[in-house]
């Protein structure tokens, strides 16, 4: 029995998998989830979750404006660009 819904994961990741890929990836993710089941055996009561492993200090910048990319630079890397807009395949719905 799979512990997750592969179709939902596909939808969230914006992917369309072929049938054989879907089977393979499903197996892989199941295996990963099983590892977490092993980790779950550790008693973590009263222990704060660890979010950061290195407590480096956050670097800040002054609120100053600098010029970013020019239109020429953008056009060099982006074919679908015109009238100052990035063009993308038509977005359906909202």
């Amino acid at each position: 029995m799979s512990k997750f819904d592969i179709e939902k994961v596909e939808r969230l990741a914006g992917l369309k998998l072929k049938d054989d890929e879907r089977e393979r990836i499903k197996r892989d993710i199941d295996e990963i989830i099983n590892y977490f089941d092993i980790l779950k055996e550790v008693d973590t009561d009263g222990i704060d979750p660890l979010v950061y492993t290195k407590w480096t200090r956050l670097t800040l910048r002054n609120d100053e404006v600098h010029t970013g990319l020019t239109l020429e630079e953008i056009k060099k890397n982006r074919k679908l660009f015109g009238n100052n807009f990035f063009r993308v395949r038509r977005i359906i719905g909202e």
Binding site: L58, T59, N62, D63, G68, L69, I74, N83, N84, F85
Partner: peptide, 26 residues
């Protein structure tokens, strides 16, 4: 402003670009 005249690798998500927080926002 004219579209896409205030953009850079950070705010258009180019690979490797890193965010640095504006102190005024805090």
């Amino acid at each position: 402003a004219k579209p896409n005249t205030h953009i850079c690798p950070v705010c258009i998500g180019l690979p490797g670009a890193l965010p640095v927080l504006n102190e005024k926002v805090i």
